[in-house]
Structure formats: C-alpha cells, structure tokens
Design a protein around this nucleic acid. Structure first.
Lengths: 232, 232
DNA sequence: CGATCAGTTGACTAATTTCAACTTCAGTGG
DNA sequence: CCACTGAAGTTGAAATTAGTCAACTGATCG
C-alpha cells in the first residue's frame, strides 16, 4: 500500500496556493496551541497508515480523505474532511488510516502532545477536545448503521444529504470534490453502483446533475425519505 | 466471567444475582468517582435510544449489547460489551443506541458529570478517559472496514478471533453469549448467513461447534487467514 | 487534437437474502 | 421423570441485490 495512488487528474500542475505564505501561525480551535500552516498538493499523502501519530490537522481550504487499504486492494474511505474539520485522531500510537488530499489543500497542524498539555490547565479546551472525540464517535456510529443495514440507494441518499448539510453553498447545491470511486469506497459500494444510483435518483426527480461534481437537490423530501433516516 | 448465569433461554426465571448486595460502591476504572452497582435481568433495557445520556457503565459480569433499530425493523448491534468493558459514550446529549442485557448482568454506573469533574484535577484520569474514547474510535474504524469491505466469511472469522481475544478462557474456546441473530445484526448479515458460514468453517476444520454458544478454534492459522486481517 | 482517465450504461455473474421446512435444545409442567 | 413446547439454529431452493466485465462517452490536459 501507500504508493502514489492518485485518483482524479494526475498530470503535473503549476502554481497553486496563490497568495498563501508557506508558514503561518494559526490558533487551534480548542486550545491555546499554535499550529503550523501546511500546503498539500492534490493526491499527496499527508500521513500514512501505521505511521506514528504525532499531529492532528485542521482543514483550512480544500478537502482530505482518510482511507484504509486491504492487501488485495479493497479500500475503505473513513471520512471526507472539509474546511473547518479536524482529523488525525485515528489511532492511539499510530495512524489507522492514510490521509490524502482530495484537492490542493491548506491545513494547520498541531502537535498532539501540545494539545494534551494545553488541556491540563485549560478546562474549556479539555471539554471541547472531549466533545470533538464524541462527535467523531457519533459520526462513526451513524456510519456503521449505514454500512451494516442500508441499501445502495439509501446509502447514496444519506451521503448526499450529509454533504448538503456540511457544505451548504447556494441552497440545494452540493459540491462533491471526490470521484465516484471515492464515494463508493466511502459507502461500501462499487463506483458503477454509485453511478447507477445517481442516475436513478435523477430519473426520480430527486436530484439534477451538473457535471460529475455538482449536484442539485431538486426534492429534499424524496431524498430524505429514500435515505431511510428517522426524519419526518 | 464465569457467573454461571443462564444465557439463552428466556422463560420466567427465579432467583438471580445470588449473593450480591443490591447496592455497592465501586471505584471507577479511571477516576476517583464512586459508582453504584446495578443488577439487570436478561433482555432488560439499560437505557433507551434517544434518552438523556447521564451515566456511563462498567460491566462486572454478564454481557450487554448496544443496538439501534430503523423504523422498518432493521437492526444493528454496535457492540457486545463484556466484563471489564465500559459503555454509554454513544452520543453527546442523548444516547444513539439502546443498551440491553444479553444475560443477567451486574454493572456499575457512574454519572458522566462526576467523571468529567474528576478529570479536572486528576490528569491521570483525564488521560485514561481520552484513551478510552480513542479506543472506542479505533474499534469503530476497524468495524467500518469490516462492514464496508469484508465478505460474510471474513466478517465471521474476524468476529470469532475478536471474541477469542476478548474472552480468553481455556485456550481456543470461545463463548458466545449472544444468539445468531445478534451476531448477524452486529456483522451486517442475516442469521442464516451466519449459521451457514459457521457450518462452512467447521467443514474446513477451522473451528468445532459444541452447542450453539461454545466454539473451539481448531486452527487459528486458517481462521486468521480467512479473516482478511493483515496478520502474518 | 488525440491520449487518458472519469463517468455512464448494459449484460451477465456472484454473493447474500428471503422464504420455508426441518432439527435441536432447554425448561417447564403434567 | 419425561414428554411437550416454543424459540433458536440449521439447511435447502428461489429471489434479489450489488458486483464484475466490458463497451462506450465525454471531459481535460498537454
């Protein structure tokens, strides 16, 4: 595992991160800890499965996927990390996932050690750290239900609604920075199934497709009903 | 372990928890917090999905399942909690899962609030609480890989090896206090598939069956290879 | 402007579920 | 004490879902 597995476009690209200084100081969201700004190229690895887990990261712009591969190549994507989100808590000593940039991405990295130290005297930080972990756990639990018991259509509908919640641009518009293959590996399906299900949802009038990476939710009711969530 | 409590039949039962006082004081595993001992009958509910999450619990004897149901009856079991394990962190405000006793069970309950307060001045407690959460997260991540990408045989083999690790009685003997249906809902399969796969593993010489709830691992090599884990 | 890779669609296959019959087992209750 | 009872478990055949293989389309980059 862990060779350069690129997923979308792979040709050499020129300038990126236009006006961003390569190093900058950012406040951690939860503690009085200074972080270091890092710029990552699309498809570049941020950390590797099994490597020593020394830092956590906050996404400023771009997007990240955390993924795990089996020896025979089967792959699972743990989560898509979007701007504002934090990742890197996958494992106690060493990382369970590999983290890769879905697009050119700017992150801030914080040493775990420093964060843990900071929580020693900062109760607010300690609490928000705990909440962050409990949030990850909740997300994992919802995901396990999806993977264990939902059908392909339900999984895709749930995913679209989740992405819609998380990215909220123009109302109804969902931007998917990842490939169909990434979505499939996130939902425990194949890329063909994802593609077919999206076509089916379009047929039903639940969504419209505008290129491969922009989807508009035409009928949130239908989508929500299809997703199998408890919602009204 | 070894409570001699009946595990699978459900007719009305008389005396249980023979010599245990109904209330006893126990130390939390991670903090200077006192807990209350509680005895639960088989199939009784400990807390309900959606209820306010005020306490966490440590299992002393017996076993617990945490499960989530969809409206149409599909069910998923989040985890089987065995003696020594802690549960109740499923959700920030309210519980994501319902927790039920798999057998007559003795627990100790601790108020979340008290634990959080205790970590304020006890750094060791704070750290072990964080580790406990990270552990749950790791378990969830392994489980997501299993649910997203493993075949039925791989899931069952992985489950058996995990239970073997966790219960380690006589070498090679695994005690399964839950029904096939419970196992199926834990692994995202049907009870028939679980049954078939177990028969298949027996055929292959990987395991032997001694009644429905005791399994001996006859060939750990085979089982490990089948499980699809990275192991040698 | 053509090479390449993402995405879509179709036909077929494989894995798992569903439905159904049958067996086993533990705990009564006669 | 032992036959009865009902749930749990096993097994088989048919049905269904999603996966695999393959052809084709379309977009993007050099």
């Amino acid at each position: 595992m862990g060779t350069g597995v690129s997923e979308t476009r792979r040709p050499a690209r020129p300038a990126a991160f236009p006006a961003l200084p390569r190093e900058r100081v950012e406040r951690a969201p939860f503690a009085n800890v200074t972080g270091r700004t890092v710029c990552i190229r699309r498809d570049a690895e941020i950390y590797c499965e099994g490597s020593h887990a020394t830092h956590i990261f906050k996404v400023i712009s771009g997007a990240v996927r955390t993924c795990k591969a089996m020896q025979d190549g089967r792959r699972q994507i743990g989560e898509f990390v979007l701007p504002g989100d934090v990742f890197g808590w996958d494992g106690i000593e060493s990382h369970f996932y590999t983290a890769e940039a879905l697009a050119d991405t700017v992150l801030v990295s914080y040493p775990r050690r420093a964060i843990e130290d900071a929580t020693r005297y900062d109760q607010v930080a300690a609490r928000s750290l705990r909440l962050m972990m409990l949030d990850s756990l909740s997300a994992a639990q919802r995901r396990m239900l999806l993977l264990a018991r939902k059908t392909a259509v339900e999984r895709v509908a749930t995913f679209l609604l989740e992405m819609h919640e998380r990215t909220s641009r123009e109302p109804g518009e969902v931007h998917l920075p990842m490939t169909r293959n990434d979505i499939a590996d996130h939902l425990g399906l194949t890329l063909e199934t994802v593609s077919r299900v999206l076509s089916g949802l379009k047929q039903k009038g639940a969504i419209t497709l505008h290129g491969a990476h922009i989807i508009r939710v035409a009928n949130r009711q239908i989508l929500s009903k299809i997703s199998g969530e408890d919602g009204p």
